[in-house]
Design a protein around this nucleic acid. Structure first.
Lengths: 111, 111
DNA sequence: TTTTATGCATAAGAATATTATGTATATTTG
DNA sequence: CAAATATACATAATATTCTTATGCATAAAA
């Protein structure tokens, strides 16, 4: 997320949503997918991503499965049931956030 | 901003935009206006607001004028020219952020 | 053969916010 | 009238989240 400060706090929402779409993904794959989807706009740093994945796993929102491909390890993550519910929740919060910010930022503000 | 984590990083944008609309405001007024505009959704904490205002002033984005009303002090802030430009910039960044997040979060994601 | 890509990880530090205080005056409420 | 709430500022300790910098290791490309 080496971009505008606004992305602070969005990483978990992004991870969860991508996993909801793709069933299972590994860390490096997530960084590449985000880069591709945003045409380079958003680059998730490893120092942010891996601790976030570990935390989500510790909270029981993700399950992990380690697989060896081409003699290199991949840690595939997928949503647990709890993670699926939390994803829905996070997406609602994002919609609310966007709505709220548009109220604050749109021209006709007068109380 | 005692709400969802998504608001992290949005405070400066909110402050600048409100000042752009209202010409000049004081700190407490900002907290109340945000509360009213968002129907209580968003509550800016003093511990976040005042340091943010001081920092914006230090960076030359805000000018301050102290006035005594009803025997109580008010510190009125308004945008400098530099602050006005930065506001426009921050609003663009917000639009970009929202667009990017919608790409990431909208149904049809396939690269 | 050196760089880049793939793939994970963590530690030090910066930035931003929450929570908890502190000070002071004005107004409302029981 | 006393106590609680509202108005108005401020800062320190702590928490959270991220960036930057490292580190390890293998594979592919230049």
């Amino acid at each position: 997320m080496a971009n505008a400060k606004l992305y602070k706090g969005s990483l978990v929402t992004i991870i969860l949503k991508l996993l909801k779409e793709s069933e299972k993904m590994y860390g490096y794959e997530i960084t590449q997918k985000v880069k591709a989807l945003t045409k380079g706009e958003l680059n998730i740093t490893e120092g942010a991503l891996y601790p976030a994945l570990h935390k989500l796993e510790a909270k029981g929102l993700l399950d992990v499965e380690v697989i060896k491909v081409d003699n290199r390890l991949r840690k595939y993550y997928k949503l647990t049931e709890k993670g699926d519910k939390e994803t829905i929740n996070k997406l609602h919060e994002l919609q609310e956030y966007i709505k709220t910010m548009q109220v604050l930022v749109n021209p006709k503000l007068s109380i």
